[in-house]
């Protein structure tokens, strides 16, 4: 009897936990299922849960109508581009503040954090005007640059907290052996902090992929990544739920997988190291 109680408790928790989890996951599951239905079945009422004749037609049609793949590639270029260039800029900065701190380091870190706290809308008007006159509106370099600047503080902060966990003595020792700063960075620091570097990159890929303020206001046809392209489905013509679902499924699945891989580091990144 005594051993039965924990089992019963566990069974109850399992039931409750899975019920809640499936409820919260339902909109995503529903989107994926609807993407395999015909348009008629997608708006059937009462709703048809399982697609009766699983079809890939929506996926093909989304591509044919709107060059979907082009927007997908824009998303890939935007998230990888802003992350890789951002890391090249952020790693030296984080190294500098973690291992060669100056009196001003604390203030610099705080200031960087404060720029992230500033609402993007505060910079919208000048950025829009500058982009307009520089011909950067609706271009990949333009949108990549602005997303990169927006996420740079998070990259520097995250890397800084990871670098701080590496004992300075180790870097000191290899410098005694005559290693240059460059060698110290590439051969000692980066390999030692590889998990941190990797999770910083993953978090930034997620943030850039899902970025929707700048992409909606600065891109239109050519450079629009998926986050902006999907918005064109807000003014529908005719039957479109199945196609909306197909476009949405392709847009969320890659990043969902990355998100699941990096969930632990995500907490740390999004709270600027306040919760580990």
């Amino acid at each position: 009897m005594r051993s039965l109680r924990p089992t019963l408790f566990k069974a109850a928790m399992t039931f409750l936990g899975w019920a809640v989890a499936l409820l919260l996951f339902f909109p995503i599951l529903w989107t994926v299922l609807t993407s395999f239905k015909s348009e008629v079945e997608a708006i059937a009422f009462p709703p048809a849960f399982w697609p009766s004749g699983w079809t890939l037609e929506n996926y093909f049609e989304v591509q044919e109508r709107s060059e979907y793949f082009g927007h997908f590639l824009n998303s890939v270029a935007l998230s990888l581009g802003s992350t890789v260039i951002g890391m090249l800029i952020a790693i030296p900065a984080a190294w500098s503040m973690a291992f060669q701190p100056a009196a001003s380091t604390r203030h610099v870190l705080m200031w960087m954090l404060s720029t992230k706290m500033m609402p993007a809308v505060g910079a919208l008007v000048p950025v829009f005007l500058i982009f307009k006159s520089a011909g950067l509106l609706d271009t990949l370099p333009g949108i990549t640059l602005i997303v990169l600047v927006g996420n740079l503080p998070i990259m520097v902060w995250m890397l800084y907290t990871y670098f701080k966990e590496i004992p300075a003595d180790i870097l000191e020792a290899c410098r005694m052996d005559g290693a240059t700063v460059w060698k110290e960075l590439v051969h000692v620091l980066l390999p030692m902090s590889l998990p941190g570097v990797a999770s910083t990159m993953l978090l930034n890929i997620i943030l850039a992929w899902n970025e929707a303020f700048w992409t909606l206001s600065l891109t239109a046809v050519k450079a629009a990544p998926l986050s902006a392209f999907i918005a064109s489905y807000s003014s529908p013509q005719g039957l479109f739920w199945a196609k909306l679902s197909a476009a949405s499924t392709l847009a969320i699945v890659p990043i969902l997988i990355i998100g699941w891989i990096s969930q632990k580091q995500l907490v740390r990144g999004l709270t600027f190291g306040a919760v580990k």
């Binding site: 995503i28 909606l216 489905y233 909306l244 969320i252 990043i255």
Partner: peptide, 23 residues
């Protein structure tokens, strides 16, 4: 179950808003 619970956070805002609005 935890993976299912955290999933909505990774859905881009435009997708989640359109899915909720329509479906």
């Amino acid at each position: 179950a935890r993976l299912l619970v955290i999933a909505p956070f990774f859905v881009m805002p435009t997708v989640s808003a359109l899915v909720w609005k329509n479906m």
